[in-house]
Simulated scan of single mutants.
Amino acid sequence: MNLINVMPFGQIAEITGLDPFQLTAADTDEIQRLLTSRFPELGNKQYAIAVDKVIVKENTVLTSGAVVALLPPFSGG
């Protein structure tokens, strides 16, 4: 397992009540499972996941020290 730095933003940070924190996880699917277990309200929220500043759409393997950002929906133009 890898120690991952998690950075929640916007409404995700409000739900977690946490500034950046750490989790131990092997991939982004596991991060989502851990977050939903710890913060059930996230189960019905949409958010994007970025790994080391790159938004990922599919399960991504994480390396120790990776930074995972949880990004709420945003709009603009």
Rank of each mutant, 00 (worst) to 15 (best):
P40C: 09
S64P: 05
T16K: 09
L42V: 03
S75D: 06
I55C: 11
G17K: 04
S37T: 14
M7E: 14
N2P: 15
A50H: 11
L70K: 08
G17H: 04
V56F: 07
G10Q: 08
A48Q: 12
V56W: 01
F39S: 02
L18C: 12
P20M: 14
R38W: 00
E58R: 15
T28C: 08
V6K: 08
F9K: 11
L23H: 01
A48T: 05
G65Y: 10
N2V: 00
N5W: 07
D52M: 06
L34H: 05
G10W: 09
T16Y: 06
A25Y: 05
V6M: 05
I12L: 11
E14D: 15
V67E: 15
E14P: 01
P40V: 10
K53F: 09
K53G: 02
E41D: 14
T24Q: 15
Y47V: 05
F74N: 02
V54T: 11
Q22S: 14
S64M: 00
P40W: 06
I4Y: 00
V51A: 10
D52P: 03
P72C: 00
V51L: 08
A13C: 02
I12F: 07
T36W: 06
K57N: 13
R33I: 12
Q22L: 06
A25S: 09
T63C: 12
Q11E: 14
S64Y: 01
A50R: 09
T60Q: 13
F9H: 12
R38Y: 04
V54H: 14
D19S: 15
K45P: 00
S37P: 04
E14F: 05
L62H: 06
R38A: 15
G10A: 15
D19A: 15
L42F: 03
V61P: 07
E30L: 04
I4D: 00
T63L: 13
D52R: 14
Y47N: 03
F21I: 06
Q32H: 12
L18D: 08
G77Y: 05
T28M: 07
A69N: 07
V67M: 13
S64C: 13
S75I: 06
A25Q: 01
G77K: 05
V67P: 05
F39W: 12
S37N: 13
R38V: 02
I12R: 02
E14I: 03
D52Y: 05
I31L: 03
L62R: 08
P73E: 04
A50E: 03
R38D: 11
T36F: 12
T16D: 02
N5C: 04
A26W: 09
Q22V: 11
M1D: 11
I15Q: 01
I31F: 10
T28P: 11
V68C: 00
D27S: 06
V67A: 12
D29Q: 13
T63I: 00
N59F: 00
Q22C: 08
L18Y: 13
T28S: 04
A66W: 00
V6E: 02
